[in-house]
Amino acid sequence: MLKITDLHANINGKEILKGIDLEVRPGEVHAIMGPNGSGKSTLSAVLTGNPAYEVTRGSVEFYGKDLLALSPEDRSHEGLFLSFQYPVEIPGVSMVNFMRTAVNEQRKYRGLEPLSATDFLKLMREKREIVELDNKLASRSVNEGFSGGEKKRNEIFQMAMLEPRLSILDETDSGLDIDALRIVAGGVNKLKSEKNATIVITHYQRLLDYIAPDFVHVLYKGRIVKSGGPELALELEERGYDWIKKELGEI
């Protein structure tokens, strides 16, 4: 579904991604790990079309379409979802309103009629349960006054509402206690199917105990320097990143 070829990207003129190659197929879970500043969050920002980043080289194909040519909202409509590392607060805009706008924009793109209020609320109720999100949150403003855990659960709730084909979870485990982590990971697992795929960006093995990856990639200095199976994550957990740097001849 996703094919990244030789992707280079800048922010403020500084090159962060220096040639990424990655292919993701339906049903797969990919973990991207790597030390701070290696370009993990940049990759998610570039894929979702954050205007702060500039792609200088390479291509990204998403279900045969040139992803980089699409606006951020159309990337979303095509089924790309990002669970933000730092979910944004939007004061005065209720979750219900926000989600209804999002869901109906997606339906419009796909040539469907907007959902009726009743159907929408029913859908919300259903999806809320996946991450055990309180009903009260729905009437509150988007992320405003949410705790760290609530924010991350709210991200996965939105993912459930939009039913993406490819989800990128950007450090979804950061700032979560163990209970919240279990709920969030449980939600992600419930949403997993043969038809969709997930890219998990994380520092730690911890999250991967709950969301089992099929592939693990190490991102370092803007390149994927090593790929392997789940055992690679365990090895990184045990040995840190220095041995990879050594392999690269840096130490």
């Binding site: 606006s71 979303s76 805009v93 999002a102």
Partner: peptide, 19 residues
């Protein structure tokens, strides 16, 4: 805020209206 809305499929003009 605008990018957050965009990522959820809401175009910029509508995002500004919402915000």
């Amino acid at each position: 805020q605008i990018f957050y809305c965009n990522q959820r499929g809401i175009p910029t003009e509508d995002a500004v209206g919402l915000i």
